[in-house]
Design a protein around this nucleic acid. Sequence first.
DNA 1: CCGAATCCCACCGGATACTG
DNA 2: CAGTATCCGGTGGGATTCGG
Lengths: 124, 124
Amino acid sequence: METVELHGNVYSGDCPTRQILDRIGDKWTALVIGLLEDGQTLRFSEIKRGIGGISQKMLTQTLRSLERDGLVTRTVYAEVPPRVEYTLTPLGNTLVAPLTAIREWAENHIEAVAEAQTQYDEAE
Amino acid sequence: METVELHGNVYSGDCPTRQILDRIGDKWTALVIGLLEDGQTLRFSEIKRGIGGISQKMLTQTLRSLERDGLVTRTVYAEVPPRVEYTLTPLGNTLVAPLTAIREWAENHIEAVAEAQTQYDEAE
DNA sequence: CCGAATCCCACCGGATACTG
DNA sequence: CAGTATCCGGTGGGATTCGG
């Protein structure tokens, strides 16, 4: 029989929030989803060009994770040269709203944060 | 004079969203904010006990970042042994809502994500 | 009790080269 | 065009020790 923590400690790594934040908090995921929102369907190269500085490796890796999580659909066309298109799944689309909430918070409060930082820093 | 990208490429690292996601996407920030929501005032040791697995180093580092960003207030009491309390600032409180949106999304869709993963994996 | 300092390893992610 | 494979440096973060 196991003892149970009485209060708090709700988060122990098995917490779903942890898992999701690990996903969308990584370097590129949020940007890819941002590009694909509004039902956009984009090719690999289009996404790559749309996000400055991402490497093929990381874009491939990010898209694979998103596909595995059921957030993005990957469609390969049997042509030559190959064409591969990506789009958000219905599940992926439901993630756009909370992500937008974060983005809007960032845009609305980034100045306050920056100000707090300089104030904190020059207080030495 | 600089050339300007015509379309897309809104995100180049200077994007505020990137910056905020880097913050809240790290391993512990969201958990600390979660503990402090509802106007909670907690001591260092209480926060530490409330979050399973965090080290003093990371808790200190996380709290310092939050303080620097103006999201958390740090109050030191000149007692012995020392007592230090943390609480969310008004700015910090405004971050609770979007964070909650993420948490709720996670709780509502984590099963769908897990199912998509196993399906993807056993499709080998 | 709270935190700074140090050591150290895992792994994230960039650069490059190679395939179908 | 859309990947896979390999190498490698920077760093996030744990363990431990020391200080006020």
